[in-house]
């Protein structure tokens, strides 16, 4: 198992390096001048030159990339050229908001989707199964931003049950949780349907397998057969998808952060790209990519724990 995890960590670092290097090149290939965007007419030639020198933009791209990794090795992500604040401070004060949102969304979606899928599989072709099927497809089909807008209009604007903006007062956790409800539902609702369909399909397949028949033949209670034997195997593809789903939610978090005026890494990255604030772009990309890679690593490891065949296969 240790060897498996070690190999996976190496592969993850490689993915991280590749993704960050590619994005580094891409963002700089897009035409743009940070000084002009941020300062408008106040961006005098002298100021532009000074800013370019401070950001290292007057050097070849490879040198800039080298400087970025050298800084990274020292734990230094650079300085925002406009506010003069450390990029790591800027990124890490926003990251928790996005992580909380993504984890709440994926956690909520799993808590609802897994039991729903499981129940549909056990009560196959029942009214509830059909109802779950219809609702799951509907949840998947409705774009998240539509859900977000209607939740906002009904639950925040019309009925005022939940706040319409912000992330709650610092240090006031119940307030922060209340601010998390609508964005998390908007972001995670589609995933409820997706997870339910996935779990149902996997469960139906697993329930037909010999070891399930054997367990039943031994007289084990149905609940034990379902939860301890069938669901454990059926969850394997779901765990992988959840790992990837976090990546998709990180990008989806942007619209929730904009619609609900929440702070977060998505909004930070979006605004940094528009203003060509390269140090902040790279800091945000590194944080989100790192988090995504970490999630897939965890998903792979959990899969290997659940299914020993995975860690023993020659490819691993």
């Amino acid at each position: 198992m240790g060897k498996f995890v070690f190999r996976r960590i190496l592969a993850s670092l490689l993915v991280l390096w590749l993704a960050v290097s590619l994005l580094f090149g891409m963002i700089r290939m897009v035409p743009g001048d940070p000084a002009s965007v941020m300062l408008g007419p106040k961006a005098t030639p002298a100021l532009k030159a000074e800013l370019a020198q401070r950001m290292g933009l007057d050097r070849p791209l490879v040198v800039q990339l080298g400087m970025f990794y050298a800084g990274l090795a020292r734990g230094d992500l650079g300085v925002d050229p406009f506010s003069n604040r450390e990029v790591s401070d800027i990124v890490f004060e926003q990251l928790p908001f996005t992580l909380a949102l993504v984890l709440a969304a994926i956690g909520g979606a799993s808590l609802l989707g897994i039991p729903l899928g499981c129940f549909s599989a056990i009560r196959r072709n029942s009214l509830l199964d059909r109802l779950t099927g219809v609702m799951s497809v509907a949840f998947i089909a409705i774009p998240s931003f539509v859900v977000a807008l209607y939740l906002l209009l009904w639950l925040a604007v019309k009925w005022r049950w939940f706040p319409a903006m912000g992330a709650g007062e610092a240090g006031n956790y119940p307030d922060q949780a209340r601010h998390l409800v609508l964005p998390a539902i908007a972001l995670g609702l589609g995933w409820v349907g997706y997870i339910a369909r996935l779990v149902r399909a996997s469960m139906l397949e697993v329930m037909e397998e010999n070891h399930i028949r054997t367990a039943r033949a031994f007289g084990l209670p149905e609940r034990t057969v379902v939860v301890s034997y069938a669901l454990r195997i059926a969850l394997l593809p779901t765990v992988t998808i959840l790992g990837l789903g976090i990546g998709s939610m990180l990008s989806g978090a942007l619209f929730a952060e904009i619609v609900f005026s929440r702070p977060g890494i998505g909004k930070l990255l979006y605004e940094a790209v528009l203003s060509r604030n390269y140090p902040v772009v790279m800091g945000s990309v590194l944080a989100t990519t790192g988090f995504f890679v970490l999630c897939t690593l965890i998903a792979d490891t959990v899969n290997a724990v659940l299914d020993p065949r995975l860690r023993e296969s020659p490819g691993n």
Binding site: L153, V157, P163, A164, M165, I258, S261
Partner: peptide, 14 residues
Amino acid sequence: PDDKAAEMAYEAGQ
């Protein structure tokens, strides 16, 4: 920064 978000926050009384 987003006008629409601000409009809804105003309508929501915030």
